[in-house]
C-alpha cells in the first residue's frame, strides 16, 4: 500500500513495507542523508526529525505511522522559520556562533530535538533542557548546546 507524506514541504509517495522505519525511507529511498543513523532503537536521538511538529526518533517510527504527515528534517528546518533558501534558523545560527558541533554527526538530531522543545517551551529551565534533550553526543558538545539554547532563549 503506497504511503504518502510531505517532507520539508514536498509530497512523496512511497511503495515500501509498512514497517520500514521512517529513517531508512528518508535516507535510502528519498536520499535525505542529513538525518543520521546512530543506534536503531531510539536510544541516541541522532535520527530525530519532526513529524507534524513533534520530535520523533525516526529509526523507531514505522513509515506507515507517518502516512499523511508533515515531516521536517534538518534539510528543511530553516524554512520552517521562514529562512530563505540557503538561510538558517536562529537556532542554527546560534549553533555556529557558539561553535557547537565537533564531529557533528549527532547535531542534526540535536537541532531537531531542541527546535521542537523550544516550540513547546520557549523558556526551558536547565532541568527541563536536561530532561527533554537526551540525545547522545560522544564529542561532548553538551555545554555548548546549552549555551546556544540560552543565546536563543535570552534573545
Amino acid at each position: 500500500m503506497p504511503i504518502s507524506f510531505r517532507v520539508n514541504g514536498k509530497e512523496h509517495t512511497l511503495d515500501v513495507e509498512e514497517d520500514m522505519p521512517l529513517l531508512w525511507a528518508l535516507r535510502d529511498e528519498l536520499g535525505l542523508t542529513g538525518t543520521k543513523f546512530g543506534c536503531g532503537i531510539a536510544a541516541c536521538g541522532a535520527c530525530t526529525v519532526q513529524v507534524d511538529g513533534m520530535a520523533m526518533r525516526s529509526c523507531s517510527v514505522p513509515v506507515s505511522y507517518a502516512d499523511g504527515s508533515d515531516i521536517t528534517t534538518i534539510e528543511g528546518l530553516a524554512a520552517t522559520h521562514g529562512a530563505e533558501e540557503g538561510g538558517l534558523s536562529p537556532l542554527q545560527q546560534a549553533w555556529i556562533e557558539r561553535q557547537v558541533p565537533q564531529c557533528g554527526y549527532c547535531q542534526s538530531g540535536m537541532l531537531m530535538a531542541v527546535d521542537a522543545l523550544l516550540k513547546d517551551n520557549p523558556q526551558p529551565s536547565d532541568d527541563e533542557i536536561g530532561q527533554a534533550i537526551t540525545n547522545i553526543c560522544r564529542c561532548g558538545s553538551y555545554p555548548r548546546v546549552v549555551a546556544a539554547i540560552r543565546d536563543v532563549t535570552r534573545a
Binding site: L32, G34, I96, G104, L111
Partner: peptide, 14 residues
C-alpha cells in the same frame, strides 16, 4: 567545517 554540520549538508562516510 561547522556550517555544513548545522544544515544537514555535511557528508559523512555513511
Amino acid at each position: 567545517d561547522v556550517p555544513g554540520k548545522v544544515d544537514g549538508t555535511a557528508r559523512y562516510g555513511l
